[in-house]
């Protein structure tokens, strides 16, 4: 029953987010600020993780497929597939649930605790639109972040293989180009976009409807991370079943 109440409240929140719109002059500033906080602010950590995890994926693949009967291009192929299909869209999204999700929940939670949301409501502001819509708008740029993650992940894999002597340049590039399906990129971006919406709305829900004091802001951030991760994993499973099988 409680779960149903939460789901109902979450759906109503999204409906109200697209209700009475805030003045464009104010809204555009909020969107730019959110792009800076949520997208540009995540660029560094996403690049760092993608580059090194891409390297590790390539090295692991090379070490575990060192049978001379297996073709040399396998390392490049496996690195490309794992990064484009899963690592960049799904696992980066889970990392983002920790980074961006906690930020959204704690900032909205703090606004709730310090009565800033009440102050907006008393003024007659549609607080859902004012606070949540700019986050959704900013996270529509999330696929660009994932594109960078894909590129850096593959580049990291390439550098690790070449510098470690696990593969030759020709073999790795051949693997990258082998059996390339454009639909895999489309699939990756469809789920990236879906995850972006989950990343914007689930942490917003946990922050907006938070009750209690400062300690509860921390608890809400943790709960928000858990539920956003769960939602991403479930959505990933559904989308993969629908689009790839």
């Amino acid at each position: 029953m409680k779960t149903l109440t939460h789901i109902g409240q979450y759906v109503l929140m999204i409906q109200k987010t697209f209700g009475k719109f805030t003045k464009w002059n104010v809204l555009k500033i909020l969107i730019v600020r959110e792009i800076d906080d949520l997208i540009l602010g995540s660029l560094g950590i996403i690049s760092f993780i993608s580059f090194f995890v891409g390297g590790v994926v390539a090295i692991q693949t090379a070490i575990n497929t060192d049978n001379p009967l297996l073709p040399g291009y396998l390392v490049g192929f496996a690195t490309r597939q794992s990064i484009i299909l899963e690592f960049a869209p799904t696992f980066i999204s889970i990392i983002m649930a920790g980074k961006v999700g906690s930020f959204i929940t704690s900032s909205l939670g703090t606004m709730r605790v310090t009565e800033q949301i009440d102050a907006l409501e008393v003024m007659g502001v549609n607080t859902y639109n004012y606070l949540i819509f700019p986050k959704i708008a900013a996270l529509t740029l999330y696929p660009f972040l994932i594109s960078i993650s894909m590129a850096l992940g593959i580049f990291g894999g390439y550098l690790a293989c070449i510098s470690g002597g696990f593969s030759s340049h020709a073999d790795f590039v051949e693997g990258l180009q082998l059996d390339f399906k454009t639909f895999h990129i489309v699939y990756a971006f469809i789920k990236t976009f879906l995850f972006a919406m989950l990343l914007a709305t689930i942490p917003s829900y946990h922050g907006y409807f938070m009750k209690g004091g400062a300690l509860d802001v921390g608890k809400a951030s943790t709960t928000s991370f858990v539920w956003t991760s769960v939602a991403i994993i479930i959505a990933n499973s559904i989308v993969t079943n629908l689009l790839l099988t």
Binding site: K20, R33, T110, M111, T114, E115, Q116, D118, A119, V122, M123, G124
Partner: peptide
């Protein structure tokens, strides 16, 4: 009408509720 009424209301909260940003 309620939204318009709210523009006629000023509120001072216990903790001031100033916007941090």
């Amino acid at each position: 009408t309620r939204a318009l009424l709210r523009q006629d209301i000023g509120m001072v909260f216990q903790g001031s509720a100033l916007f941090d940003s």
